[in-house]
Amino acid sequence: MHRTVTELADGRELIYYDSAPGRDRGAKDLRPLDPVVSAPELRRDAATGDWVAIAAHRQSRTYRPAADACPLCPSREGRPSEIPAADYEVAVFENRFPSLSGAAGRCEVVCFTPEHDSGFAALTPERARLVLDAWTDRTAELSARPGTRQVYCFENRGAEIGVTLPHPHGQIYAFTTPAPRTVKHLAAAAAHRAATGRNLFEDLLAEARAAAERVVLAGEHWTAFVPYAARWPYEVHLYPHRRVADLTCLDEAERAEFPGLYLDLLRRFDRLFGLAEPTPYVSAWHQAPTAGGGELALHLELFTVRRAADKLKYLAGTESGMDAFMNDVAPETAARRLREAR
């Protein structure tokens, strides 16, 4: 991997990730951009202990622009974008409309490909590996920033998820406090350690691998399985067999195997409902906090909001109001259907 660091016209950082050195990354951003003015505020909900980001400036962010005005495509003559280069492999830049910035954290956009109508599932294994290397590099750099407590790499895909830019991309958040779901994970892991003397996530992986009916894919270094108490109708967790804290701790064998398994998994999601359009999903890397997160194991959680070809899983009264999920599909059935979606 080769990285080139540069700046956009308003001073935001832009990083090109290339599979090899030698690419010309000297194109300048000539847009007349004003400096980014954002002041997200973190407020703590006293009733739950959760932190909520108040980011009112995001109301004016770009919303589903026409393809010829996409800000994530490479720049063309007369059509400048967030990527000044005429082509790129993988690019990462600071979000112009961040949910978190300054003392509240940092938000970055990860462009997986210059192809506007493509998707992660259409990447080659080599390009998927480059994305993994970019995630890893950003995890290392952001984790070292003062105030960062957790780095979260994720992708939202599909209008049904609420994506406002259809170009294939993900995001990276540097949180200044561990996310609420991570706090729950750590509490459960501490209770499990106290009760059994073992690590919760190692036991969850061992239990899933022993229950073959919930395994979707398995390699030498990774296993993808539907969790026993899945919240979403089609939800898969992907774990490395060796417990590590975050992406920076993966060894070369684990990195080499990941792209093939992950691409296979995404393509199974796309085939699951027999539809022409891609399946909407959220793909989320869960990484340990930079301090006090030793019990949390790196893993990826992937789920779709679609529960049938013509039905979406809406978060209604129980889920939205009480955070009490009701699943319409048995986890064992979901795993079988994903195994069959070859």
Rank of each mutant, 00 (worst) to 15 (best):
A85L: 03
A121R: 13
G119E: 14
L30K: 07
L30R: 12
V109S: 03
D87N: 09
G78T: 10
Q59I: 12
V92W: 07
P84Y: 05
L42F: 14
E41Y: 09
Y88E: 04
C70V: 07
P40V: 11
S81G: 12
E82K: 03
R31M: 08
G119K: 04
T62S: 00
F120L: 12
R106F: 00
P114F: 05
A53K: 06
V37R: 15
Y88N: 04
S60Q: 15
D50F: 10
R44Y: 07
Q59W: 07
E82D: 13
D68S: 12
P65I: 09
P98L: 05
V109T: 09
P35K: 12
Y88C: 02
R44H: 10
R106E: 11
S118H: 04
A66Q: 11
T48F: 06
S99W: 02
C73H: 10
A103N: 04
A55Y: 06
A85T: 08
G102S: 08
Y88S: 03
R43G: 11
W51D: 14
R79W: 10
D50T: 09
V92K: 01
Y63V: 13
G49T: 09
N95V: 03
A103W: 02
E89F: 05
C107Y: 06
I83E: 07
T113H: 01
D87P: 04
A46Q: 00
I54A: 15
R106P: 00
N95G: 01
D34R: 15
S118L: 02
K28Q: 11
P71Q: 13
Q59E: 15
D50I: 08
C111S: 03
S99L: 07
T113D: 04
E89A: 05
A66W: 09
P114Y: 01
A53E: 10
A66C: 08
R79T: 14
P114M: 02
V90M: 05
A104P: 02
I54Q: 15
V109A: 05
A66G: 06
V90D: 03
A56W: 08
K28N: 03
Y63E: 09
S99K: 02
S38W: 02
A121L: 05
A39T: 15
P35T: 12
W51T: 15
S38V: 14
D117I: 00
A53N: 11
P98C: 07
C73V: 13
E115G: 02
P84D: 04
A55E: 06
A53S: 13
G49N: 08
A85I: 04
V37Q: 14
G105M: 02
P32C: 15
D45K: 07
S75A: 12
C107G: 00
D34K: 14
W51N: 14
C107P: 00
Y63M: 12
R58I: 14
D29I: 12
L33D: 14
D34V: 14
P35Q: 06
R76L: 09
D68V: 09
P40S: 11
A85H: 06
R106N: 01
I83H: 04
K28I: 06
A121D: 15
P98R: 03
A53C: 08
L42W: 10
R96V: 05
F97I: 00
A46D: 00
F93C: 00
A53V: 14
A121K: 07
P40W: 11
I83F: 07
R61V: 10
P84Q: 04
E77P: 00
P80H: 04
A69R: 13
D68W: 08
E115K: 08
G105I: 03
K28H: 10
L33T: 12
S38P: 01
